[in-house]
């Protein structure tokens, strides 16, 4: 048997969901010894595989775990890993597709699906903010000679979220009073759309609430719009009076610069 075939067959036996024993394949591939059968030896690796990956997901998504409950989270995690096996060398990326996967499977969490999707998006953004890449900060010199393709961009580690539930508050509360009140009850009581930036400062991850216009302006900048176009887009349905605009822009840009969110990006000259 060639190396590739052995590894494919061993991986298939290993990654089969818990409960499926794969005894026949184990016998074909693995030698027994005087204490353990081939399938018992395979089972050592299978237990280790599932424990490692399920623990990793639960650690990265404590909010989703709290919403689903531990048992249901474990079931959904097994299903998720079957549909979205790890394609990265690092466990850090294991949950990258969980928010979209939950969105595609309303049957799993029923009435709590939207809440769980919001929480999964926040918790994935938390991972990105923790160790995501950082681009050079916007420098005044960039503004002196901007060039036709220059745009103000945002740090790659910053995620902007429009959420139906205030899961940022729930996630913070989970750390302080875990188990005192079911997360889904707490979130449902607070149901209220919010805009959140998940970012970091000096190594600590923060959730910062944004005004709707501030959120749309940042999103437009991230998408490569020029500043004037981004401002028009952000305030197209604004409740703010036009006279308030200069003060708001000054406040927001000063805050974003202070937080280190702004960077420089360039767009294709053909798009200019």
């Amino acid at each position: 048997m060639r190396l590739l075939e052995l590894q494919r067959r061993m991986a298939a036996a290993l990654l089969a969901p818990p409960g499926k024993r794969g005894r026949k394949e184990a016998v074909r591939l693995i030698k027994p010894n005087d204490r353990l059968s081939a399938s018992e030896r395979l089972a050592i690796y299978r237990r280790s595989y599932w424990a490692r990956l399920l623990d990793s997901l639960a650690e990265d998504f404590p909010g989703v775990t709290a919403i689903a409950g531990r048992r249901r989270f474990r079931r959904l995690a097994v299903q998720y890993l079957r549909d979205c096996p790890s394609r990265s060398f690092t466990l850090r990326d294991l949950g990258a597709q969980l928010p979209d996967w939950l969105q595609r499977h309303p049957e799993i969490l029923g009435a709590h699906q939207d809440l769980a999707v919001d929480m999964a998006r926040l918790e994935w953004a938390h991972i990105v903010a923790f160790d995501g890449a950082q681009s050079p900060l916007l420098d005044p010199e960039h503004l002196l000679e901007p060039g036709p393709g220059m745009r103000i961009g945002l740090q790659p580690y910053l995620t902007l979220l429009e959420l139906a539930y205030p899961v940022d508050e729930v996630r913070v509360a989970l750390q302080s009073d875990a188990g005192q009140q079911p997360a889904r009850r707490k979130a449902a009581r607070l149901a209220n759309p919010v805009f959140v930036a998940v970012h970091r400062s000096e190594g600590t991850v923060y959730y910062r609430r944004l005004e709707p216009e501030e959120f749309h302006l940042l999103q437009a900048l991230r998408r490569g719009r020029a500043i004037s176009s981004a401002v028009r887009f952000a305030f197209r349905h604004s409740r703010h009076a036009p006279a308030d605009l200069p003060r708001l822009l000054e406040t927001w840009f000063a805050a974003w610069a202070r937080l280190g969110w702004l960077t420089v990006t360039s767009i294709d000259r053909h798009q200019v």
Binding site: R2, M10, A11, L14, Y45, P85, R87, F89
Partner: peptide, 25 residues
């Protein structure tokens, strides 16, 4: 050791088959 196949990762340190083909590769 090995731990991935066809782009899927097990995140484990799996034992090698001790063959000459595996050693060369």
């Amino acid at each position: 050791c090995w731990g991935s196949v066809d782009g899927r990762y097990t995140h484990d340190l799996l034992p090698m088959p001790y063959t000459f083909e595996a050693a060369r590769w």
